[in-house]
Design a protein around this nucleic acid. Structure first.
Length: 226
DNA sequence: CGGATTTGACCTGCGC
DNA sequence: GCGCAGGTCAAATCCG
């Protein structure tokens, strides 16, 4: 269902950098992706996938603690009762799992990968040298015609650069809110120009500036994510 | 006219 | 130290 690569970016595991591809290759989620938010929750062992369409369709994921609610939500999104989670399975690999009745993440044993069309992914080893502290970054891939996805925040473009070995320029955006230093980069994947790679850097210090209905869902998601 | 975008110049970090 | 590539700045331009 997803194709992705994920790698740790910083020693601060809360700022892992992941790539995910929405929508799945061959189903009807295509339209849901056009309004997307970052959608991963990371800690040092797991990464839970929150489909961006949650933001558009409901705001109950964050508050929901019952498996039933999660099933309802994920069924509507995935066509199955799986809240996806990536779990660190060894030093360098991650595996998909699902949330069980106790709200724990169950490692996939019955080839959930096949069911969902995903495969375990490899992580890049972290560089060992000391590096200067960077803002938390989150990066994801989206299949989209439009470069700039509607994430609920207002952005001002401040630069564009042609990156080596790619025919598509990379655009640089800053959040327009005063005192908010969040930046994002947007570029097309060289191997597949249909894919947009969006990289967020930093934490918003404010809520998204959306219409009334959307803002609640989005702010909850973003509170969780950032 | 004011805010957003464009784009060439400049800055910075990194590898050699 | 040098060159390269990516990131940022800011003046010019665009556009509603």
């Amino acid at each position: 269902m997803f194709s992705q690569s994920l790698f740790e970016d910083e020693a601060d595991m809360s700022s892992q950098l992941g790539f995910f591809t929405f929508p799945p290759n061959n189903n009807n989620m295509g339209s849901a992706i056009t309004t997307s938010l970052p959608f991963g929750i990371c800690n040092h062992k797991t990464l839970t996938i929150i489909p961006p369409s949650f933001a558009a369709h409901n705001n109950s994921l964050i508050e929901s603690t019952s498996l039933r609610q999660k099933e309802d939500l994920t069924t509507s999104i995935f066509g199955g009762p799986h809240l996806l989670s990536l779990q660190k399975s060894s030093a360098n690999t991650w595996a998909w799992g699902e949330v069980n009745e106790s709200n724990n993440i169950k490692r996939s044993r019955d080839n959930i990968d096949d069911h969902l069309g995903v495969s375990a992914i490899k992580m890049k080893k972290m560089k060992s040298s000391t590096r200067k502290v960077r803002e938390p970054r989150f990066c994801f891939k989206t299949l989209s015609d439009v470069d700039v996805l509607d994430d609920g925040y207002k952005w001002r473009k401040y630069g564009q650069k042609v990156v080596k070995n790619t025919q598509h320029p990379r655009s640089y955006y800053r959040c327009t809110q005063d005192n908010c230093r969040v930046k994002k980069r947007v570029e097309r994947l060289a191997e597949d120009p249909r894919m947009v790679i969006t990289t967020y850097e930093g934490r918003h210090v404010h809520s998204p500036s959306l219409d009334e209905d959307d803002s609640q869902a989005s702010s909850q998601l973003n509170n969780l994510l950032w």
